[in-house]
């Protein structure tokens, strides 16, 4: 059994270079539900929670950086995140319940890479940049390139998420988040959508829409965005966006929902969020 408790990022990276099979542990809200056998076999772990460089929220030029092991409770409480990225706060408030939010981390949500991860469409819509750390140093990965397949990420062996950078949106931007689950709290999403955009001179000047649980990875809804760019925000544009979104995704039937329901719910949610720009 190897259980490392490094106290610095350098120590983490050195250990991971020596042994890329070490499993990083953060809030453990995904890891610990893998079952007793899997846990027993997890005999080479490296705990990230004691590494100061990986935690906390910092203002940087043009945006905020959120450390990978920052919990959703910390994100909810942060005045800086509340002011600049209310869509992320909305997502954080709906991840599990209080106990889960106290432990679950943003980096864990990203690295776990479930198509239902609630923060992931928000990071896509906000054009986030992942700062990954590995033995060869730091590397930036645009969020649009982070999720490479079902539960696959662009992280290389021995690399971890160090933090994520969120660029401030231009003055006058709006953002929104909506999750549809079996109930309001403590429910994995059937459909989750985030929006960031800006209306200028009565037209939709910028729009980024992203959705989760409707494909193998979280996805940008590019057809929906294109369908309404330049239009005046209102019911007609909202209808167009909703219909385009429903056509461009490839949801599946699974234990939580059906493909048909997901497409239906996505259309409604996109319509409502775009209507909210008016």
């Amino acid at each position: 059994m190897i259980a490392l408790q490094p106290r610095s990022l350098d120590e983490v990276l050195q250990s991971l270079e020596d042994d890329p099979a070490l499993v990083p542990t953060a809030g453990c809200t995904d890891l610990m539900v893998r079952g007793p056998e899997a846990l027993h076999e997890m005999d080479r772990v490296i705990d990230l929670l004691g590494v100061p460089e990986l935690r906390g929220i910092q203002e940087v030029a043009g945006g905020l950086e959120i450390g990978a092991t920052t919990s959703f409770s910390e994100i909810r409480r942060s005045a800086a995140v509340r002011a600049a990225f209310p869509a992320l706060v909305a997502a954080a408030s709906l991840v599990g319940g209080w106990q889960i939010q106290n432990r679950a981390t943003l980096g864990g949500n990203m690295a776990n890479a479930s198509p239902a991860g609630d923060s992931l469409p928000v990071l896509l819509a906000l054009d986030a940049v992942v700062v990954a750390a590995g033995a060869r140093g730091l590397r930036e990965i645009p969020y649009a390139g982070f999720h490479t397949g079902y539960r696959k990420t662009a992280l290389r062996p021995g690399e971890i998420v160090a933090r994520v950078r969120l660029p401030y949106l231009p003055e006058g931007s709006v953002q929104a988040f909506r999750k549809v689950g079996t109930r309001e709290a403590q429910a994995i999403s059937k459909v989750v959508v985030a929006l960031a955009g800006r209306v200028a001179e009565g037209r939709i000047a910028e729009l980024r829409l992203a959705a989760g649980s409707v494909a193998a990875t979280p996805v940008r809804l590019r057809a929906a965005e294109e369908a309404v760019r330049g239009l005046s925000p209102g019911p007609a544009a909202a209808d167009l966006a909703g219909r385009a979104a429903a056509r461009e995704v490839t949801p599946i039937d699974d234990v939580r929902s059906t493909a048909d329901y997901r497409r239906f719910a996505l259309e409604r949610v996109v319509r409502r969020l775009v209507l909210g720009m008016a």
Partner: peptide, 18 residues
């Protein structure tokens, strides 16, 4: 649920390590 440093957490999801 138990409190860890005053915060409610689920003891079924907290490994001894932490």
């Amino acid at each position: 649920t138990v409190l860890m440093d005053g915060e409610p957490v689920l003891s079924c999801l907290v490994p001894l390590l932490q």
